[in-house]
């Protein structure tokens, strides 16, 4: 997907929320995968919030999160939602503007 605003990577801050369901295997993998992706280019550019839906269902409701794990990339716009454990690195990197 072509996303505007990603041509000058140094200037872009990426803000996102990862929704997980406790210690579910796929949630654990999603945490690992997102951390790995962020560290590849230095985590400073990434603002990652992790929400456990069992602790905070209201935020899940606010973001219409029916399945977990799910990653919502808020900034830069437009908002993109990735569903799954983020094992599809190609799609994850594309969403984060890493390729």
């Amino acid at each position: 997907m072509n996303r505007p605003g990603l041509t000058a990577p140094g200037a872009v801050r990426c803000r996102m929320i990862l929704f997980v369901a406790g210690d579910e295997p796929n949630s654990r993998r999603a945490r690992e995968n997102i951390r790995a992706a962020c560290s590849e280019k230095g985590s400073k550019r990434y603002d990652l919030q992790v929400v456990d839906v069992f602790d905070d269902f209201q935020t899940a409701l606010d973001y219409d999160i029916m399945v977990t794990p799910a990653l919502v990339v808020l900034d830069p716009p437009p908002r993109v939602t990735l569903l799954g454990d983020l094992s599809d690195t190609e799609k994850l990197h594309a969403a984060l503007g890493l390729i």
Partner: peptide, 21 residues
């Protein structure tokens, strides 16, 4: 809830979100 039909599928997921809500 609005289901995001443009959501990108990037691996395995389950309906735990729904259950939590």
């Amino acid at each position: 809830p609005k289901i995001d039909y443009n959501a990108i599928f990037a691996g395995e997921f389950s309906i735990k979100g729904l259950l939590a809500i």
